[in-house]
Nucleic acid binder design. Sequence first.
DNA 1: TTGAAAGGCCGTCAGTGAGG
DNA 2: CCTCACTGACGGCCTTTCAA
Length: 264
Amino acid sequence: MDGMVDENGTVDPLAPSPPPVAISSVGVVTQQQLVASTNIVHLTLPASNNHAQTQVQSVIQPNQQSVIQTAANIQPVLGKGNVILVSKPNSVIQTPQGSLHALQVVETTASDDSYSDDESPKKRRDLLTRRPSYRKILNDLGGVIPAGAIQISSGEGGQSIHTLSMTNSGTAGAAIVQYAQGQEFFVPVMAQSGNITSGGGEDQARKREMRLLKNREAARECRRKKKEYIKCLENRVAVLENQNKALIDELKSLKELYCKQKTE
DNA sequence: TTGAAAGGCCGTCAGTGAGG
DNA sequence: CCTCACTGACGGCCTTTCAA
């Protein structure tokens, strides 16, 4: 949830940290929730008929072509001349049907040039390996997300947006965090005084327990990010392959044109 | 049907860098 | 210096696949 994020909310550690996102929407995009700090864009598009709205979760990568991956039935919507504007040429919308939709491109003043490719290797390496802390991320999100509700965008074809809601279960010093997809996990909460019961070995054991619990959660989160990162890379490969194919075709047709003119 | 191999997920440990 | 978040590495467990 930092840096560049791809169409699935995927973090892209290869990309520099985000300048202001240059995205605008036209026409059918009825709702655009832009979480500036994470560059995750939730678009709710009206379905082509009277069906439920279609949700697209996308992520804008300021220095790369962007891929917007959609749920299964969005293609008719996109086919009706709707336009999503992004700041980079050759961005595509990828649908489960395998078709690619070119995006209309507008020049935007924001962002693209604010990051150059001549960053120091160390800085680049840092970008690769270090991410902002969750505290910082949560602070960033503080103005966007209502207290008590945390939205997590996570993977799975850009379709799953997980909502966490916290309930004080009444159990002392703990809360149940419910996962929108039916999962739930237990989160111990510090007592109001801020310290856990004092007392020798018991305290040590409790501290260890806390550390293990936190590390468990951290490992989970880390793996999730890693998976999304890989997905992001795969998506970028798809974009680049598509671009490459288009360029080859263009070259071919230009060659043909040239040969034709030459023979005349 | 069965056993081995492969792959995925999880928990834990250890090391690193950032921030206070 | 200390604490914390993060992540690579490792081993264990479970599921799936596939040849015998």
